[in-house]
């Protein structure tokens, strides 16, 4: 799949997400939109994990620490061949469904259950440590939200990642600067987040446009070259990315579009997709 197509495909997957949320009558739509390119970069360009090798001990590992962005995760897993997107859209959040509103590791492709914030990084420290102990070359990735960084357990994970020199570990922060109550800096500020994480002994890469797959790929490639310390990628993203209806609006953290909004959002996605194809 060529890069230009991926950029356009991001808007098709966004459509899947919105359809899921319309059918399921709920979902964390804003964060789904901000994290989409991060997940696509990982699953389509970076990670060695496919439906065929999902049980291999050498596969790369991923944990969606910001588990509430599960709709974007389902869309990407489906596009990667782990799930059937029509089945997901039909059953998402419905009675008795396996497609829960947070990751469910009974589904193919999902390593760990998540949903409560602040768990992914410490779990990934364990996964990366196991890789080191077993002399395996796999890499371990997690994606956290920026609001999530108020959880103390995240910083326990940062400490341990440095202590054990886990250069096979890469944590991505979906820095969309909004959480359910408003601006992250008003709720619990991070000041200079890069400096803060650097002071924990991590290599930090700041990606100015975290919704640009090329820029994300470049950062992930750089992370692979770092030795002796883990890498954090701070990806400056736009919450609700893809449609002016949602972009940078805190009240779209968890919201179901009205029919009118739905039509507008889908039209916006289509326009962005066309623009990506004509780039």
């Amino acid at each position: 799949m060529i890069m230009e197509n991926l950029k356009a495909k991001a808007f098709d997957l966004r459509k899947d997400v919105v359809n899921m949320i319309m059918e399921g009558k709920g979902g964390h739509i804003g964060g789904d939109m901000s994290v989409m390119e991060i997940l696509m970069s990982l699953y389509f360009c970076q990670m060695n994990v496919t439906p065929e090798n999902q049980d291999s001990p050498d596969r790369d590992r991923f944990v969606l620490s910001k588990g509430h962005s599960v709709e974007a995760y389902y869309a990407v897993l489906a596009a990667k061949g782990f799930l059937d997107i029509q089945d997901v859209i039909k059953k998402f959040s419905k009675f008795g469904s396996s497609y829960i509103g947070h990751p469910n590791n009974k589904l193919p492709g999902i390593e760990m259950n998540s949903g409560s914030l602040g768990h992914g990084l410490p779990v990934c420290v364990g996964m990366a440590l196991a890789g080191k102990k077993d002399h395996r070359d796999y890499r371990v990735y997690t994606v956290m939200g920026d609001g999530e960084l108020a959880e103390g357990s995240v910083w326990e994970g940062f400490m341990a990642g440095h202590q054990y020199k886990l250069d096979n570990l890469c944590a991505v922060i979906d820095r969309n600067r909004l959480q359910i109550s408003g601006n992250t800096e008003d709720v619990m500020g991070h000041d200079d987040l890069g400096e803060r994480i650097r002071s924990f002994g991590w290599h930090v890469i700041e990606v100015k446009n975290g919704n640009d797959i090329d820029a994300l790929n470049k950062a992930f490639e750089e992370a692979k070259t770092v030795k002796g310390q883990p890498t954090a990628i701070i990806a400056d993203t736009t919450k609700g990315y893809g449609s002016a209806v949602m972009e940078n609006k805190a009240n779209w953290h968890h919201k179901v579009p009205t029919q009118e909004e739905y039509q507008q959002i889908m039209a916006d996605f289509e326009a962005r997709k066309e623009a990506a194809l004509n780039e």
Partner: peptide, 21 residues
């Protein structure tokens, strides 16, 4: 594995290790 005085980390790291065999 020593996690320091960090019980949350202790349990999550254990889970990650277990997930990798």
């Amino acid at each position: 594995v020593e996690t320091g005085i960090a019980e949350q980390n202790l349990v999550s790291i254990s889970a990650g290790l277990a997930k990798c065999g």
